[in-house]
């Protein structure tokens, strides 16, 4: 669990906004702006954040489903962004994705058998004669019956389809799976089943997950480490316990205070933010959170805070991007609510 399977350095993903008569590039949507992080082999790193903070974009950029603007994505020591089309297709065997919408993620005109067969054929992982056995095995692994192999997607429920999606990803024996909001579209009871399945698979096949979600409850259940994003930047990253029990960034604190507590009598110290997330087209200068942060000062408007660790307050590997970690913690700075 020590080697870094995936190392992302200075990843940027800008989507151009075209305008004018000749479709000139007018501006960019800075969906992901210069982020760096690493994922260790066999662990689950969750990316959390609200809509539009760039978590899905990060996942897609790593898999090169959208070409990143700049940066470095190094997988097992290979820089994925420098590979050409053919090399990348080969490399894709090790990197798979499970999508959010189980109704849109399977070709409605293919049977499960075809879906799985195609996955194995593309990467040529299993000799043709052994594919049928492997398919049966996969179906059992994800908890589906063999007799369902010749059915079409529309004959399955959402949870079952998600299992098909998982089976398809597993068909090529990947090392890293990006779960892009993989359980968000499912009922809570089904969510638990699929999450437990993912956990079991991780143990059995030593998989590494990059788990993208907005559901903090789910994240708490499945993660080893958590990364919090806000407007295309990482605001806090660390192991699950540190981030959930000892959050250091005001945004993380806000996010965590929004988790519902299943106890109507419990006293809650909820922080409510004012306003909306600013536009990623012209993000705020300095700290991107300063427009909504109750602790913001003039320094926050000008200087971009780097991810850092306060040795006294935080454990190793726990980093937050705030200028005032110590001051807020000691009570020296009080939140200003206007």
């Amino acid at each position: 669990m020590t080697t870094n399977l995936l190392q992302v350095n200075n990843l940027k993903q800008y989507f151009p906004i075209k305008g004018g008569f000749f479709g000139r590039r007018v501006n960019d949507v800075k969906a992901v702006d210069d982020i760096s992080f690493a994922v260790k082999e066999g662990e689950t790193l969750s990316i959390v954040g609200e809509s539009g903070c760039g978590k899905s974009t990060t996942g897609r950029a790593i898999l090169r489903l959208d070409e990143p603007t700049s940066g470095e994505v190094s997988f097992n020591g290979v820089d994925l962004l420098s590979l050409n089309g053919r090399e990348m297709r080969k490399q894709r065997k090790d990197l798979q994705i499970i999508f959010q919408d189980p109704y849109a993620s399977i070709n409605p005109r293919q049977t499960v058998r075809k879906v799985l067969d195609e996955a194995m054929e593309i990467q040529n992982v299993v000799p043709r004669k052994d594919r049928a056995d492997r398919m049966m095995e996969l179906m059992e692994t994800v908890g589906l019956g063999r007799h369902q192999l010749d059915r079409f997607p529309h004959e399955f429920s959402g949870g079952q389809r998600q299992r098909i999606g998982i089976a398809r990803a597993l068909a090529v024996d990947p090392k890293l799976i990006v779960c892009d909001e993989s359980v968000s579209a499912l009922d809570v009871s089904i969510q638990a089943q699929v999450l437990n399945l993912l956990k079991k698979l991780q143990k059995d096949f030593n998989l590494t997950y990059l788990f993208i979600s907005h559901d903090l409850g789910v994240v708490r259940h499945i993660s080893d480490r958590v990364m919090v994003m806000y407007l295309g930047k990482i605001v806090e990253i660390g192991d699950k316990k540190s981030v959930f029990d000892n959050p250091k960034h005001p945004y993380t604190k806000t996010l965590l205070s929004a988790i519902p507590v299943p106890d109507p009598t419990a006293e809650r110290d909820q922080i409510v933010l004012r306003g909306d997330v600013p536009s990623p087209i012209d993000p705020p200068t300095g700290c991107r959170f300063h427009t909504r942060c109750p602790f913001a000062t003039d320094k926050c408007k000008e200087e971009v805070p780097e991810l850092r660790q306060d040795a006294d307050l935080m454990k190793d590997g726990h980093n937050a991007a705030c200028h005032y970690i110590e001051e807020i913690e000691s009570g020296e700075m009080k939140p200003k609510y206007k």
């Binding site: 897609r60 894709r92 994705i97 090529v172």
Partner: peptide, 14 residues
């Protein structure tokens, strides 16, 4: 734009 196209692309389909 549908996800299943991305899914086969992620599998390495030409």
């Amino acid at each position: 734009k549908l996800e299943y196209v991305d899914a086969v692309r992620a599998l390495g389909a030409t």
